[in-house]
Amino acid sequence: MNQRINPRMVRTDSLSKLFVDPKRGDVKAVQNATFEAQPGQIVGLLGKNGAGKSTLLRMLSTVLTPSSGKAWVSDFDIVANPTEVRRSIGFMSTSTALYGRMSPREILGYFGELHGLQGASLKAKVDELISRLDIGSYADGLCDKLSTGQKQRVNIARTLIHDPQVLFFDEPTSGLDVVMSQDVMRFVEEERERGKTIIYCTHIMSEVERLCDHIVCIHDGELKGQGSIEALKAQTGESSLEKAFLKVVGYNQEVLA
């Protein structure tokens, strides 16, 4: 655990994203976000819905271009070297669907090929993930027929097919039952054990307490505070993470009473 392969695997420096909305005017989705994530570390992006967590992740995964600021993933600039960044990341969200008319094995093969794997090495990697995630019994059926939990396992396998050094999880347990949520968290922990750098977006405090080594609190696009769980509790003088978080983001003090 906490094995250092490449320090500062993810680094942002005043990263901002401004959306121009004809109705609402300029929307500052993320403002001056600066944080780091090390190998073998899970960094939790904690914030309410619409706080800017997903926008931040989408900038780091090169889907969105920052309006200003800089960011590096695996020491590659996300704007100057987007292809290299994409090679080193895996992205998973519960809202991401699978191709319904393809089987899990075909989907893994497809994404493996897109990441440059082929032939025997691709087949071996697909077989390994099918076995590791226990999806062998439905690996050759169509994804349309799978349950939500089964789909999520396939999604995890898809994220890991190219063995990325950096993993982004965007609310990966949202909508899942308690058993599947535990499975997802176990896989996230396993990946940390393997020395991966993980950014984990959520608003579920129990998940943060279980998984995260470092927390970044985000509210209305701004980073309001960061540190370990204990540091945040100490900094706010609160005994629970939930209350500490609410205090950090400046939520109504009466609620905390």
């Binding site: 090169t62 889907v63 290299e84 994409r86 969200s93 991401t96």
Partner: peptide, 14 residues
């Protein structure tokens, strides 16, 4: 709509 495009755009393919 199904949000599968995002996974495709995150792959290292132009």
């Amino acid at each position: 709509e199904r949000q599968t495009l995002e996974t495709l755009l995150i792959s290292p393919v132009a």
